[in-house]
Amino acid sequence: SSQSQGISSSSTSTMPNSSQSSHSSSGTLSSLETVSTQELYSIPEDQEPEDQEPEEPTPAPWARLWALQDGFANLECVNDNYWFGRDKSCEYCFDEPLLKRTDKYRTYSKKHFRIFREVGPKNSYIAYIEDHSGNGTFVNTELVGKGKRRPLNNNSEIALSLSRNKVFVFFDLTVDDQSVYPKALRDEYIMSKTLGSGACGEVKLAFERKTCKKVAIKIISKRKFAIGSAREADPALNVETEIEILKKLNHPCIIKIKNFFDAEDYYIVLELMEGGELFDKVVGNKRLKEATCKLYFYQMLLAVQYLHENGIIHRDLKPENVLLSSQEEDCLIKITDFGHSKILGETSLMRTLCGTPTYLAPEVLVSVGTAGYNRAVDCWSLGVILFICLSGYPPFSEHRTQVSLKDQITSGKYNFIPEVWAEVSEKALDLVKKLLVVDPKARFTTEEALRHPWLQDEDMKRKFQDLLSEENESTALPQVLAQPSTSRKRPREGEAEGAETTKRPAVCAAVL
């Protein structure tokens, strides 16, 4: 046999249950609850290399294929790409003598399909299967379609040439079993990697079954959420508030809700932002270029202005709740996480202390139980975000031990490091100062900020419009641009040419 590394010779191994799959997660993409704000000051410096380099560890398999027929071997997927077919160049070659004697062998292509993985959001991997055969590759009886790919989820059954000719079961060793999710959700989405997690739940990458488009699904544990919100009269209202707010909003710089499922837990389906959180971008770069800050901040102002015009105060604006559309420097941003939002009543007064301390406005800290506050709290938070983006460190921090965090904020005395700000323009610093004003009545509004000289930049605004146009074009394009080929190089076993392929839609398939 010419099988590559990772293939075992026996096809009769006992199949494990899916609970053996491991679970991976990374930083929070968007969480309903406010958790302790991640610290920006503690960015690790590059460490000196050791005298002796450690040995390379043996790579762990990321997936496993269990053979369902004699003549096929099990495969431990270690590499990122595997070709399957009769050709000797394939990493998994159909060359077992037992297999060659079967009637089905002649229906398999020289290069029938490939399984591979690509880097997705949060640097996690996504597994795909890609059909290159004349007679078809099927996943859970659905045709992939020649020249098309679809994501592979845990426990997928792979069939060759005929939908009933099941050859492998695919085990993704990095994700959960699909069966743990409600059927209504599974009918519409293929669940994938964990993108982030918080005290009350997690955010998962998923794929729409009909279109193969990526989405983010925010899962909120009702049990954990009820415990964490025990002081509230009705904890469920917080989730329902977020859903109702998101459904009503329609702005290019605000995250869109696509679906909602109320089962044992809450499942909020949101558009996916491939670039992750602004927080991670700031930490990764230490600070952002001023031109990049301007492009992002302009969009934040437009989003918050839209919220305020619609009578909504976000109340928890922070870099973790600003998501980026891509890994590119120039990209769209979207505001997310409306769990603490407040729809303005007639009095415009709110007395609930919520939000993240580092970003809270002075009037929030001094008015607990005594007075109210209004939309100006969001403008203060925007000032803190702009400060961080321009400088790479927070204006107020618990680690300045000589003054408490509350006193720093209520006095408006931010930590100004001259040598850092020497590289920032006077106009940018002036806008920061106009937003970090203790008196909410004297603080800049979103309208005033948008009129500030720093943002009178036609090149930046043109760039934003171009990015918007690109997004609109990409969302308007159909996901499947061509029909699967019906040509046949070899006959199917026991049926006429093209008899099955043309009847089945290529579900969740995307043209390369």
Rank of each mutant, 00 (worst) to 15 (best):
I243M: 12
I243P: 00
I245W: 07
K247A: 08
K247D: 07
K248A: 08
L249I: 12
N250A: 04
H251Q: 13
C253I: 13
C253P: 04
I254G: 06
I257L: 10
I257N: 05
I257G: 05
N259F: 13
N259W: 09
N259Y: 11
F260H: 13
F261V: 05
D262C: 14
D262M: 15
A263Y: 04
A263D: 00
D265V: 14
Y266G: 10
Y267G: 01
Y267T: 04
I268K: 04
V269Y: 02
L270D: 09
L270K: 01
L272G: 12
M273L: 12
E274A: 08
E274V: 12
D280V: 12
D280N: 09
V282P: 03
V282D: 01
V282L: 12
G284S: 09
K289P: 09
K289C: 07
E290P: 13
A291D: 09
T292N: 08
C293K: 00
C293I: 12
K294W: 06
L295Y: 07
L295Q: 09
F297G: 06
F297W: 14
Q299M: 07
L301F: 07
Q305K: 11
Y306F: 10
Y306Q: 13
Y306H: 06
N310G: 04
N310Y: 15
N310A: 12
I312A: 01
I313L: 01
H314A: 02
H314C: 00
R315L: 01
R315M: 01
D316G: 00
D316V: 02
L317E: 01
L317P: 01
L317T: 00
L317C: 13
K318M: 03
K318I: 01
P319L: 12
E320R: 04
E320T: 05
N321A: 04
V322Q: 00
V322R: 05
L323M: 10
L324D: 00
L324E: 06
Q327P: 13
E328T: 07
D330L: 05
I333V: 05
K334G: 09
K334I: 12
K334S: 04
D337A: 00
F338A: 00
L344V: 09
E346T: 00
E346L: 04
T347P: 05
T347L: 10
S348W: 09
M350A: 12
M350N: 06
R351G: 13
T352D: 03
C354Q: 02
G355L: 01
T358Q: 08
Y359C: 04
L360V: 12
A361S: 10
P362Q: 00
P362C: 02
E363C: 00
L365M: 06
L365S: 10
G369W: 15
A371E: 05
G372T: 02
Y373Q: 02
N374M: 03
V377E: 01
D378E: 09
D378R: 00
C379N: 05
W380T: 04
W380G: 02
S381G: 14
L382I: 04
L382W: 04
V384S: 02
C389V: 07
P395T: 03
E398K: 10
T401I: 13
V403E: 14
L405W: 13
L405C: 06
L405R: 04
D407E: 12
T410R: 00
S411P: 07
Y414L: 15
A422V: 11
E423D: 04
K427V: 02
A428R: 13
L429M: 10
L431W: 00
V432A: 05
V432Q: 00
K433S: 00
K434E: 13
K441Q: 15
K441E: 06
A442R: 03
R443H: 04
F444V: 15
E447A: 07
E447H: 06
R451G: 12
P453K: 04
W454F: 10
K461N: 11
L467F: 08
L468I: 06
N472F: 13
N472V: 12
S474M: 14
S474W: 05
L477P: 15
L477S: 07
Q479I: 00
Q483L: 09
S485Q: 15
S487D: 06
R488H: 11
G494T: 04
A496S: 10
A496L: 05
A496T: 12
A499V: 11
E500L: 11
A506D: 08
V507S: 10
C508I: 09
